[in-house]
């Protein structure tokens, strides 16, 4: 399972590197009179990234059978909480301006506390979340003079 995800990641990095190199080549000729153009360095970096990705893919394909055995015991990730945390952060940022700091932050902090613990003592966690959001507001807005978006403007 780990090997497949790792290989997928490497294929993704290879695809990004190839896309980067194609864009770099599209910037124009890498050499000009007595010097280099803006495309030279990206072409060099893109080519190096492709080489490194390819080496890692070949290494991984060669070592795949042994890795699969080891992966089951030591590298098994702890569920999908990280994906939910990513989704929570994404929604929080999307709501940050429209819903304002207080509501979006309270929901975000409560969601993270629940993701890192359980659904028990919901009221207590809601109160803790409100306290955290209030303290962070005081720190950012009052102490450090940062303007945070609020519904009342």
């Amino acid at each position: 399972m780990f090997t497949n995800k790792y290989l997928l990641f490497l294929y993704f990095m290879l695809a990004v590197s190839v896309g980067y190199l194609i864009t770099a080549v599209g910037l124009g000729d890498p050499f000009a009179e007595n010097g280099l153009t803006p495309s030279f360095f990206p072409i060099l970096v893109g080519a190096a990234a492709i080489v490194f990705s390819s080496i890692l893919i070949v290494e991984q394909l060669r070592a795949a059978p042994e890795r699969e055995i080891g992966a089951n015991s030591s590298n098994e990730p702890g569920g999908y909480t990280h994906l939910w945390v990513t989704v929570a952060i994404f929604i929080y940022i999307a709501l940050f301006r429209t819903a304002g700091y207080f509501l979006s932050s309270w929901l975000f902090v409560l969601a993270l506390i629940l993701l890192f613990s359980s659904l028990e003592k919901l009221l207590q966690k809601a109160v803790i979340s409100a306290a955290i959001v209030g303290l962070a507001y005081l720190m950012f807005q009052q102490l450090f003079g940062v303007r945070l978006p609020t519904i009342w403007g």
Binding site: S105, L112, I113, F116, A136
Partner: peptide
């Protein structure tokens, strides 16, 4: 308590990235 700690860190991190330019693009 790790749940509270991580929630605080996440809040400070995301709001902190907003501070520089007041832009949600920086947060994304």
């Amino acid at each position: 308590r790790k749940d509270v700690l991580y929630a605080v860190i996440a809040l400070l991190a995301v709001v902190g990235s907003f501070v520089a330019t007041y832009s949600t693009f920086q947060m994304f």
